[in-house]
Design a protein around this nucleic acid. Sequence first.
DNA 1: TTTTGATGACCGACCGGTCGGTCGTTCATC
DNA 2: GATGAACGACCGACCGGTCGGTCATCAAAA
Lengths: 194, 194
Amino acid sequence: MVIGMNTSTRSATKRAEILQVASRLFYEQGYHQTGVQQIIAEAGAAKGTFYTHFKSKEELGLAWLSARHTTWNGWLQDAIRDQPTARGKILGIFEFLGTWMEDCHYRGCAFLNTLCEMPDCDPAIRAEIANHKRELKELFQSLVAQHQPEASQADSQQLGTVLFLLFEGTLIELQNFREPWPLDGARQHVESLL
Amino acid sequence: MVIGMNTSTRSATKRAEILQVASRLFYEQGYHQTGVQQIIAEAGAAKGTFYTHFKSKEELGLAWLSARHTTWNGWLQDAIRDQPTARGKILGIFEFLGTWMEDCHYRGCAFLNTLCEMPDCDPAIRAEIANHKRELKELFQSLVAQHQPEASQADSQQLGTVLFLLFEGTLIELQNFREPWPLDGARQHVESLL
DNA sequence: TTTTGATGACCGACCGGTCGGTCGTTCATC
DNA sequence: GATGAACGACCGACCGGTCGGTCATCAAAA
């Protein structure tokens, strides 16, 4: 029993180690710039071990994005959980951009980076990216609906969409310019809208 | 004289052919997904010819973005030139997104794609990308200033920044979802702002 | 006017290295 | 003995880049 757990633990650990190292490298260097050899070297695994856990590099990429979705949403929820109002939560999402950007490893959104990097990738990867962004858009829309309960659903969805698009634009331009003004401009506009 | 011109013409043509083919492939497949071998094969050139005209693949990438800046700005100017008012021009920029997206080869913004693809690239490439976006932001800001001559410069710059960020978010989400709703949402918001 | 030598665009074989992926083997666990 | 995780040598293809050489052009020498 205990030994059996050790076995599966070792296996699970190896797979997890590979995934963890790959996640860091994919994010920091990009998917195409990161080779399987580098991943296994830094994870201390052999080539064969890699391919017992992942049938291809692309499947590892998909596992990375899938895990990243959970991780990133956790960060976001941590950042806005303590905000009592919907308005505070919406502004908190933009504030979160600021703290995230200050991270020395900030390299923008993993999903957008992958989207831009892989024009004709596996449909499963495209779906993972679209799903991540769709959920974020719907978060904005539901928060707007909370903040403006008297508004029509169409109006809430419209404003939520705009906030989402503004967030995405801010995200990408923070990555581009590495300066705080996109966030300042977006924050000010959002405050005036709500 | 004439023969001399033929010589330089032939050279210029070869270089131009390589650059033209590379521009298409870089945009459609991405920079890293496109190899020098494929470029020269489709351009009908030899490896050595490539390296007489470009000292490296990266220099070709820079030449691509530099030319793309001119080309894309030309498209944009063509799209908004006939608009008599600043408001019309601003809305025209967003309309331009729609016609651009309908292009069967639409793959988003070459500059953002390259930014996302190359986290630690040549500073000259980063500068080319930042410059392209800076000019677009300033176009929005100057159009806002024309549209609201009574507003303070700070207010014009603020609104121009927001329009720019909204444009960028729309751009990237059109690429992501390949659906018209991001553009519809952005257009509606811009109309209500102006 | 003809010959010659320098120039440089163009060519394609070739370089070392890396790519993603396979496979036969070892070895711990049950 | 059976199972399967872990290993690492190995595969062909491709990567960006180099290099020796051909040939057309053209200015200078004969």
